[in-house]
Structures are given as C-alpha cells and as structure tokens.
Design a protein around this nucleic acid. Structure first.
Length: 150
DNA sequence: CCCTGATTCGC
DNA sequence: GCGAATCAGG
C-alpha cells in the first residue's frame, strides 16, 4: 500500500468522520487492518470502539452541516461505484451566499479541524464538486471486492 | 457468529 | 513502515 499524502489525507478525513476502520478500508480499497494499522502508526485518535453499543441509539454520527451554497455531493451508490468523497464537518471556508457559478473544488487540504485546513477551491469540473485533478482521485472504483471463488 | 478497533508480529 | 493475523470486547 502506497501511503501518499493524499491517501493519508483521505484516511484522516474518513477517520475523523467517524467511519469504521472496515468502512474506510472498503472506501480506500484496502483492508481494515491496513487502516487501523496505519491509523495507529499515524497516532490518529483512537476513536471509542464500537465495543460499547450506544443503548438503542446508532453510532454517534456527528451531523454534517451542509454548505449553504456549496455543490451537492454525489449520492452514494452502493451498487455501482462509491465515490470516496471526503465530506467535511464544520469547516466552511466562506459562507458567502454568492458565487452562483465557478464552483470551487471542495477537496480538503490539510487536516480537518485545524485552522490551516482549507479546500482546493480550484475550478471544479461541471457536475462534480472537485476539480479535474481531485475528481480523478475522488472517484475511485471501489466495487472490485468481487472475488468469487466458484 | 456477527460486528468493531488494538496490538502483535513477520515481512 | 506495511498489513495480516491475532487478540480483545460487544
């Protein structure tokens, strides 16, 4: 596994969003062990293991605020391909209710939660929330877990 | 047995 | 440093 700056960035994003290691692994097309292993190595915050089911309630999924005017993130298609979109939490660059066009690429740069965090903001591809560069790495085929050993 | 994450351990 | 294997817990 080549842990580039981008893969690590995505790992951190997904990790920070509260996704399970297995889920992150699925999204990045790697094993959960790789995820948890790398996460541990990166000294990422060991999130409260699910080994403690929240009585009746689902896992504490922090509500993700929508960008007032941001581009609509593509829906997850669990049947076809799942774009590993690094949804952010409460990091809104400039909630200016303007700029009806020239959608900025919302690819996360840096670590979510840190003040230095920012979006790519390059010109996004029409119909996509990312610029060409980041759209390429954002929309990865993730449904190749098909290993039918007939 | 299912799920989860954590750590260990060989590469 | 990497991740599978193993371990631990629900």
């Amino acid at each position: 596994m080549e842990w580039t700056d981008e893969t690590i960035a995505r790992l951190r994003s997904l990790w920070a969003e509260g996704l399970s290691t297995a889920e992150i692994g699925r999204r990045l097309n790697i094993s959960k062990n790789a995820v948890v292993g790398k996460a541990h190595r990166l000294n990422l915050p060991a999130r409260p293991s699910p080994i403690r089911r929240t009585s009746g309630e689902a896992v504490p999924r922090p509500a993700q605020p929508k960008r007032t005017q941001g581009p609509t993130l593509p829906p997850l298609s669990s049947s076809v391909n799942t774009p590993a979109m690094p949804v952010l939490r409460a990091i809104i660059p400039t909630p200016k209710p303007q700029q009806p066009r020239a959608t900025p690429c919302c690819w996360p740069i840096g670590e979510p939660g840190k003040p230095s965090f920012h979006f790519c903001n390059a010109s996004a591809v029409a119909g996509k929330p990312y610029c060409e560069e980041h759209a390429a790495i954002a929309y990865v085929r993730v449904r190749d877990k098909r290993e039918d050993v007939a």
